[in-house]
């Protein structure tokens, strides 16, 4: 089950914990993967670890021209983008009264607009080939909200709406579009929390712990698979029970 041999996948934000784990998991199932990120050394290290069937594709997702170029580079390197994982995300947290326009714009541009542009580029080829998977990594806060994150929550909620609309447009072409909404996952984003903060967080999670990146990657493998062909427009929450939607 879940064999991805012969498939190609572009994973954005593959230099991060979750993106890296997703890239590794798709690769382990046989896919050829394109690793996007901004930190080239981290991508090169991951590529070296994976060995064959891997391409490094750095790009700044805040720059519209760079996003269009990334789509072209990925198609050139991989031959196609059968599976697109829009995982890259940034945070610029702050209470709304103190949030600058640029903090709002940066987060929306990278998290939502880049995902839109890459999806638009990817579905073109997927429609021709009559097969495709788009997996958008959103967040539990896109559904529940979170103080200090009006920009981030808006971008992640936006991804869910975008996915549902796109899923309806392309379903007849065997293309599925789904979201994965991680809860709190151990990563560079959560490493900055103090032990007290972590203990408080874990208290609000029925599973009593943070999630691991590989637990998100497993969900991505499922949604990328041929077996998940009848699942589209959905958001799969992987959050230890912290929000049941």
């Amino acid at each position: 089950m879940f064999d991805l041999s012969g498939k190609t996948a572009l994973v954005t934000g593959a230099s991060g914990a979750i993106g890296g784990a997703i890239a590794k998991a798709l690769h382990a199932q046989g896919a050829t993967v394109g690793l996007h990120g901004t930190r080239k050394e981290a991508l090169d290290a991951l590529a070296a670890e994976l060995g064959e069937r891997v391409h490094v594709l750095p790009a700044n997702l805040g720059d519209p021209a760079a996003v269009e170029q990334l789509a072209k580079d990925a198609e050139a390197a991989l031959g196609s983008i059968d599976i697109l994982v829009n995982n890259a995300g940034v945070t610029k947290d702050g209470l709304v009264l103190r949030m600058k326009d640029e903090d709002w714009a940066t987060v929306l541009d990278v998290n939502l607009t880049a995902a839109f542009r890459l999806s638009r580029a990817a579905v073109k080829g997927q429609m021709k080939r009559r097969w495709g998977r788009i997996i958008n990594i959103t967040s539990v806060v896109g559904v529940t909200g979170n103080p200090g994150q009006v920009n981030y929550a808006a971008s992640k909620a936006g991804m869910i709406g975008m996915s549902k609309a796109l899923a309806q447009e392309v379903a007849s072409r065997n293309i599925t579009v789904n979201c994965i909404a991680p809860g709190f996952i151990s990563s560079a984003m959560t490493d900055v929390l103090s032990d007290d903060q972590k203990a408080k967080l874990n208290g609000g999670i029925p599973a009593g712990r943070m999630g691991e990146a590989v637990e998100i990657a497993a969900a991505a493998v499922y949604l990328a698979s041929t077996e998940a062909a009848y699942v589209t427009g959905q958001t799969l929450h992987v959050n230890g029970g912290m929000a049941m939607i």
């Binding site: 073109k124 429609m127 021709k128 447009e169 392309v170 007849s172 072409r173």
Partner: peptide
């Protein structure tokens, strides 16, 4: 053709 086909044709 469906509506998506017509868009594909135009492209």
């Amino acid at each position: 053709a469906d509506s998506l086909d017509t868009v594909e044709l135009v492209m």
